[in-house]
């Protein structure tokens, strides 16, 4: 008989004991170790995933911040540039205004100086001309200036041409007022009579004359009736002299006044 039933029973028991022992010493510890390792690997992978996600998120956040920063910087730069431009324009305007004001002031000062010089020159010339004329006349003729002036006035009256004489004659006829004869100094009686006689002779009538004296004439005689005027006096000469001097100064002023501000360098500032 090949089957020994005692051995069968013993082997069944042996096998069951082996099952229990191997479960206890082999399968359970090995499986536990594998499970623990798998859990650990899974945890590490999950951790790595989480860290990767976190890193990605942080990178995105950083990129956003960087972009915002760039944009802000550009905006600030543009703002600063604009402000600088505005400030530059303002400063240039200010400088230009200041330069303009300075130039105007200088021109005004120059003009006043020229005027003062003109005035001084004028009065000096008046005085000199008067003195020279008086001295010359006195020296040469041996008669008073007034006598010579009256003589010249009468000569002119005589030399008056037809048209002027007619106009004046009409003026004398239409007026009731006496003819006004003005001189720088009060005329002596002889001269007054000579003028009266010359007028009567020239206009063939008894002309009523009123003699006046005015220092503004400087020298000479001035005759006026009903808006018409005949005269010869030094004030007229001096006035024409004054005009000549004025013109001379003005022509001298203008190129100088124009060139001076240009020389200051403020007219065309370049940054």
């Amino acid at each position: 008989m090949l089957i020994d039933w005692f051995t069968v029973g013993a082997q069944v028991i042996n096998f069951l004991v082996l099952v229990w022992l191997l479960k206890r010493f082999l399968y359970r510890p090995i499986l536990d170790a594998i499970d623990a390792r798998e859990q650990r690997i899974a945890a590490e992978l999950a951790d790595a995933d989480a860290k990767r996600a976190e890193a990605k998120q942080e990178r995105e956040t950083f990129q956003h911040k960087n972009q915002a920063f760039d944009a802000q910087r550009a905006a600030l730069l543009a703002q600063a540039t604009d402000a600088a431009k505005t400030e530059r324009a303002r400063l240039l305007d200010e400088a230009r205004h200041a330069a303009d004001a300075l130039r105007a002031k200088r021109q005004e000062a120059l003009r006043q100086e020229a005027e003062q010089l003109n005035q001084a020159l004028l009065s000096r010339t008046q005085r000199e001309v008067f003195a020279i004329a008086r001295k010359t006349l006195t020296d040469l003729a041996g008669v008073s200036l007034e006598e010579r002036l009256v003589a010249v006035f009468i000569e002119r009256l005589e030399a008056m041409n037809g048209e002027a004489r007619d106009v004046f004659g009409q003026a004398l006829e239409t007026t009731t007022e006496p003819v006004r004869v003005r001189s720088a100094l009060a005329l002596p009686v002889a001269q007054r009579e000579a003028i009266q006689a010359a007028l009567n002779r020239r206009f063939d009538a008894e002309v009523s004359v009123r003699f006046e004296s005015g220092p503004d004439l400087i020298g000479g005689i001035d005759l006026s009736a009903n808006g018409q005027r005949i005269g010869w006096n030094l004030a007229d000469y001096l006035k024409s002299l004054e005009q000549g001097v004025d013109e001379l100064l003005r022509t001298k002023d203008q190129p100088g006044a124009a060139s001076k501000p240009a020389a200051s360098g403020l007219d065309d500032p370049t940054p």
């Binding site: 022992l21 191997l22 170790a33 623990a36 390792r37 650990r40």
Partner: peptide, 19 residues
Amino acid sequence: MLVLVVGAFLVTRKLSRDL
């Protein structure tokens, strides 16, 4: 049985749970 159990015991006595 002895060889199997003792062998398993000797190995699993100091199991590593690391990598």
